[in-house]
Simulated scan of single mutants.
Amino acid sequence: MRLPSLVGIALAALVAGAAALVHAEQGADNKQATAPEVLYDLNALPDPVKAMLHQIGNAAATGEIEKMRPVLESNELKPMVAAAYIDDPIGHWKKESADGTGRDVLAAMLDMMSSGFVLTGKGDEAMYVWPYFAEADITKLSPAQEVELYRLLPAPDAIAMKKAGKYSGYKLGISTSGVWHYFIK
């Protein structure tokens, strides 16, 4: 009985890792070609994406990270929360959080969801990504966009990312079908 569950975990990790690599490669290609259009109108999102955002936002707003568990379990596969497969995203977020409760992670989710976002990829590969900085050249931000970046990150972090030329904070990805693919740094 133990073998099938290990095989299932390995398969899930392989699929999630492959999806992340494909998305990362597409993101790099998109940045080099043309910057995607920054979107702000949540009402223009497909209904499955709005539904997933609503679930994530409602759970995060409670301040109780365990409220996120049903959202995670409603997904086809658990979203990626780190470069390697993590069986318990909530345990991971608690461990990574500043206070051990994960509330700062929930706050980061809510902050990101209030920022602009982009649609990357096409067809079955299409993905909505928050914040749009994850797919933008942050060395070329307008003054208003810089203010938006400072709303998401402490100034020293934002400045370091601008110098590095890459956003490296949390990012959230939801497919057009409403599948939550990742919330990773």
Rank of each mutant, 00 (worst) to 15 (best):
Y150L: 15
V105Q: 07
M161A: 05
Y132F: 15
T101R: 09
K31P: 01
L149Q: 01
W180E: 00
H181C: 00
D29S: 10
M109L: 12
L21P: 02
F133S: 02
R69S: 07
A13T: 09
A51G: 08
K94P: 03
K50N: 09
A28F: 06
F117H: 02
M112W: 07
L11T: 12
D41P: 04
Y150S: 10
I65A: 01
S5L: 11
G27R: 04
V105I: 15
L42F: 09
Y85D: 03
G17H: 08
M127N: 03
E64A: 10
E73F: 08
A136H: 05
A59C: 08
M52R: 14
W93Y: 15
E135N: 10
Q55E: 15
A10H: 10
D137A: 09
D124N: 12
D104W: 06
A20W: 06
P4S: 11
K95F: 13
L45A: 14
Q32M: 14
A160I: 00
G169W: 05
S114N: 15
E148K: 13
D124R: 11
N30S: 11
I90D: 01
R103T: 13
A24F: 10
A126E: 03
H181E: 08
K94N: 07
Y132K: 02
A82R: 14
V118K: 02
E66C: 01
S114E: 15
A33L: 12
G102P: 01
W130M: 04
V15N: 02
I174T: 03
A126W: 01
K31S: 06
P70E: 08
K95C: 03
G27I: 00
S177M: 04
L153M: 14
L106F: 04
A35I: 07
P48V: 13
Q26W: 05
L72Y: 04
T176P: 01
V15R: 13
A134L: 02
V71N: 04
S177V: 02
M68F: 02
A134I: 01
S142F: 06
G169V: 07
F117R: 01
A158T: 03
H23C: 06
A82E: 15
H54S: 14
A126T: 08
P48C: 13
G102M: 01
L141C: 09
D41H: 09
K162M: 15
S5T: 12
L39A: 10
G178A: 08
A98L: 09
P36R: 01
Y167S: 05
I184K: 05
